[in-house]
Design a protein around this nucleic acid. Structure first.
Length: 496
RNA sequence: GGCGGCAUACCCAAGUGGCAAGGGAGCGGUCUGCAAAACCGUUAUACAGCGGUUCAAAUCCGCUUGCCGCCUCCA
């Protein structure tokens, strides 16, 4: 089955056909840089990261652009509050954003253009709109006349009359229609300003995306993405500006991700119930957060809590644990070659899961990026692989068994990596996991090691009462010991 | 007031006409000095309620109830 994408513009899943064969041009609305990012931003970034990785895995060359809106009222307000130039604010949060995205393990876009570096392009669009009579100057501002663009409302699926009837529109005497929106804002004294045919000012909110998307991706380009809340007015207005200015379709597939909720309520800066990315990553591995996000379909809302993220974390540990065991124990013979019939004989069910995963995975992902279903198939392979390993106790595998386990582990990892999971060596993962979790227990690694050593001595002396006392002492700090022939490992359990 | 979405086991969650994926948690067992992890078994005659279409519906249609989002800055 070919890739189907749900298109907000039509309200249907549609077969994806790129404008240019073999290439995908994708524009995702980035952030307005006036504060730290929260996990809603993380979800959006992860969703489009997975889309980008999957498209790449299909063989497309993906040209991914994600902008920064670095001039806006909120930035100016914050700069004023701090008594600094607005650029100090935007630069600081761009840096923070990059740190967050890197922590999340996201592929960097090909381009990250800044609004303030594209003022001439924006002025050009406004100029065209004014020339065509679709925009008008009122006072020191220039507005887009929504009634003058026949397609207005096609993305969000609403009629102008209905929106006006909603009555929650700001009163502005300059506007001819209450739904008209500003393209160019005359600057007030002390505000940053650029010269324009309408006097000194700065661009309105939506225009930068129309300008930058067109400049770097042409028209129409393939995928335009962002959070659901951008459908209206941001994306609706982008379409209106771009299509009215150039008389050409703007973007083909509009992809919008659902929100992150806290206690079943939308998380947002305005509600003040938001959790920043760095707060979460302080105690949660980025891949745990990623698995949490992709365990649900991207268009549905998702409820964030320590519990739901904890579940994802347990699942991820399982994946890594199986990967580690399979890799280590199949080292002898992983490169030997055997005919399929021989491999199949070692474990029919595992062999069949291994054989079928690629097709099932593609089918799920081709169906509007159904990562939740894809994850389900991956766990099915994981379970069969772990079961197969367990059949041999703790022994290393040899011959066709080793080969089958190695192929399964590779398959597992390969498909996970399309979604940005299992990106590091299991040992590195577990080490990081311990460090992250240990912080929440108030114990140091040396203390833990010391106690383990003392317990080890007690066990040699068959002083099991003392050994169990130490185990219990550690368990009270949520540190769980696991005895292996080669030594004792430990892990930190979830917070209650 | 307008527009849209959602309702699947204890929790999370996939499933758009043909025997209800997957994860977490629980319970019983195997393993273990004791554990943990892992594995095995087990947990929805049933998909908010009612009615309809169909040989066949969680899936399509209608109504009802409940929750959420957008219409204002927001990923």
């Amino acid at each position: 089955m070919a890739l189907q994408i749900y298109n907000t513009l039509t309200g249907n899943k549609e077969e994806f056909v790129p404008v240019e064969p073999g290439r995908v041009k994708m524009y995702v609305c980035g952030i307005t840089v006036y504060d730290l990012c929260h996990i809603g931003h993380a979800r959006s970034a992860i969703v489009f990261d997975v889309i980008c990785r999957f498209l790449t895995s299909l063989g497309y060359q993906v040209f991914y652009v994600r902008n920064f809106t670095d001039i806006d009222d909120k930035i100016l307000r914050r700069a004023a509050a701090e008594g600094v130039d607005y650029r100090r604010v935007s630069e600081r949060f761009i840096r923070a954003f990059h740190e967050d995205m890197q922590s999340l393990g996201l592929l960097p876009p090909a381009l990250e253009p800044l609004a303030t570096e594209h003022i001439p392009e924006m002025i050009e669009i406004v100029r065209r709109l004014v020339e065509k009579g679709v925009a008008y100057k009122a006072g020191t501002d220039v507005y887009f006349g929504v009634e003058l663009f026949s397609g207005y409302g096609k993305l969000s699926g609403r009629e102008l009359e209905d929106m006006v009837a909603g009555a929650r529109v700001e009163v502005d005497e300059n506007k001819r229609n209450p739904m008209d929106f500003v393209l160019w804002k005359g600057s007030k004294p002390g505000e940053p300003a650029w010269e324009s045919p309408w006097g000194p000012g700065r661009p309105g909110w939506h225009i930068e995306c129309s300008a930058m998307a067109r400049k770097y991706l042409g028209a129409p380009f393939d995928i335009h993405g962002g959070g659901k809340d951008l459908v209206f007015p941001h994306h609706e207005n982008e379409i209106a500006q771009a299509e009215a200015a150039f008389d050409a379709p703007f973007a083909r597939y509009w992809v919008h991700n659902g929100f992150v909720n806290i206690d079943n309520e939308k998380m947002s800066k305005s509600l003040g119930n938001f959790i920043t990315i760095r707060d979460v990553l302080d105690s949660v591995h980025p891949e745990s957060l990623r698995l949490f996000v992709i365990s649900k379909h991207y268009r549905s809302p998702v409820d964030f809590s320590d519990e739901t993220v904890g579940e994802a974390e347990r699942g991820l540990e399982r994946l890594y644990s199986t990967l580690e065991a399979a890799t280590q124990r199949s080292a002898n013979g992983r490169n030997d070659d055997y005919p399929d019939e021989i491999l199949k004989k070692q474990d029919v069910e595992l062999f069949e899961k291994l054989e079928s995963l690629p097709a099932l995975f593609s089918e799920a992902m081709n169906n509007d990026f159904n990562t939740a279903q894809a994850v389900g198939y991956i766990f099915a392979l994981q379970r069969n692989l772990q079961r197969f390993l367990d059949k041999f106790g703790r022994k290393n595998l040899k011959g066709p068994c080793a080969r089958l386990a190695a192929l399964s582990a590779d398959c597992l990892q390969k498909h996970c990596q399309v979604m940005g999971l299992l990106m590091v060596d299991p040992e590195v993962f577990f080490e990081r996991q311990r460090t992250l979790k240990l912080k929440t227990t108030g114990m140091s690694e040396d203390e833990v090691r010391d106690l383990i050593e003392r317990r080890h001595k007690a066990r040699i002396e068959k002083d099991f009462a003392e050994a169990d006392r130490i185990r219990k002492q550690l368990e009270e700090k949520r540190i769980q010991l696991e005895d292996f022939p080669e030594g004792t490992k430990w892990r930190v359990g979830l917070q209650p």
